[in-house]
Amino acid sequence: MRSYQDPCGVARALDLVGDRWALLVVRELMLGPKRFTDLHRDLPGSSQNVLSQRLRELEEAGVVRRRKLPPPAVVWVYELTAWGLGLEPVLLHLGRWGSRAPITTANRLGVTSLVLALKAMYLPGFEGSLELRMGEEVFFVETSREDIAVGRGPAARPDAVLKGEAGALASVLFQGADPREAVAAGELEIEGDEAAVKRLIGHLASSAT
């Protein structure tokens, strides 16, 4: 691995996660373990060789570990160590900072990126519970006037449930698309209190701000 040979903590951090794809691997594992095939699917621009190399380097650095899931799954997955999970606030701040840069790709936002963006862009003040369903993946969103919690699994008592692809949800939540137009176009389904969805949108920083 290349090194900046600089004792500064920033330089030492970049020695570990500064190579291409490294931080995006960390991003994809932030919400839980994934198989290699899942990571390669969710990072479509990466080659298998480069992805394997980054995972090996992150594992050697103690940021990522590989383990076998117990029966009946019995598959190998990659997950963040406790030290690796400590990168979450870095990713959230970096995502918030980067949201001001212009979007230069037609590719749509991924599921993990959308969920982390909710945490990064949340503006305190909204209280409510939502559930997001994107294909087979389900996430809860619980907000208070001070904080937001998101994670895998259904919400206990959601005010509303949103169903759609991550890109469609991102357009409504962050980019000003009208929820009713998205519903009419068949890109989004909303069950429950539509007003709760609009209130949450009002407490998410726009990528244009």
Rank of each mutant, 00 (worst) to 15 (best):
Gln5Tyr: 05
Pro7Asn: 02
Cys8Gln: 09
Gly9Trp: 15
Arg12Trp: 08
Val17Thr: 00
Gly18Thr: 01
Arg20Gly: 00
Ala22Cys: 01
Leu24Pro: 04
Val25Ser: 06
Gly32Tyr: 11
Pro33Val: 02
Pro33Gln: 10
Pro33Phe: 04
Lys34Met: 11
Arg35Ile: 00
Arg35Ser: 13
Arg35Thr: 13
Asp38Thr: 04
Leu39His: 01
His40Ile: 06
Arg41Ser: 11
Asp42Ile: 09
Gly45Met: 03
Ser47Thr: 15
Val50His: 14
Ser52Cys: 12
Gln53Asp: 11
Gln53Tyr: 04
Arg56His: 04
Leu58Arg: 04
Ala61Glu: 15
Ala61Trp: 14
Val64Gly: 07
Arg65Val: 11
Arg65Leu: 12
Arg66Thr: 03
Leu69Pro: 05
Leu69Thr: 15
Val74Asp: 15
Val74Ala: 13
Val77Phe: 03
Leu80Val: 03
Ala82Pro: 05
Trp83Ala: 12
Gly84Arg: 01
Glu88Gln: 14
Pro89Lys: 11
Leu94Glu: 11
Gly95Phe: 11
Arg96Ile: 02
Trp97Met: 12
Gly98Lys: 14
Arg100Ala: 08
Arg100Val: 03
Ala101Leu: 12
Pro102Asp: 00
Pro102Met: 00
Pro102Ala: 00
Thr104Cys: 13
Asn107Met: 11
Arg108Trp: 05
Leu109Thr: 14
Leu109Asp: 08
Val111Glu: 14
Val111Trp: 03
Ser113Thr: 05
Leu116Asn: 04
Ala117Cys: 02
Ala117Lys: 06
Ala120Ile: 02
Ala120Asn: 05
Leu123Ile: 15
Pro124Met: 08
Pro124Gln: 08
Glu127Phe: 08
Glu131Asn: 06
Leu132Trp: 00
Met134Lys: 03
Glu137Lys: 13
Val138Asn: 12
Phe139Ala: 06
Val141Tyr: 05
Thr143Ala: 14
Thr143Pro: 04
Thr143Ile: 02
Thr143His: 05
Arg145Thr: 05
Arg145Leu: 10
Arg145Cys: 03
Ile148Arg: 07
Val150Glu: 00
Arg152Glu: 11
Gly153His: 07
Ala155Trp: 07
Ala156Trp: 15
Asp159Leu: 13
Asp159Thr: 09
Ala160Arg: 12
Ala160Asn: 07
Ala160Ile: 11
Val161Asn: 09
Ala168Ser: 13
Ala168Asn: 01
Ser171Ile: 04
Ser171Gly: 14
Val172Cys: 10
Leu173Val: 06
Leu173Arg: 05
Gly176Val: 09
Gly176Glu: 14
Ala177Gly: 03
Asp178Leu: 10
Pro179Cys: 06
Ala182Pro: 07
Val183Pro: 01
Ala184Ile: 00
Ala185Gln: 12
Glu187Trp: 12
Gly192Leu: 10
Glu194His: 10
Ala195Tyr: 13
Ala195Asp: 15
Ala196Lys: 09
Lys198Val: 15
Arg199Met: 07
His203Thr: 03
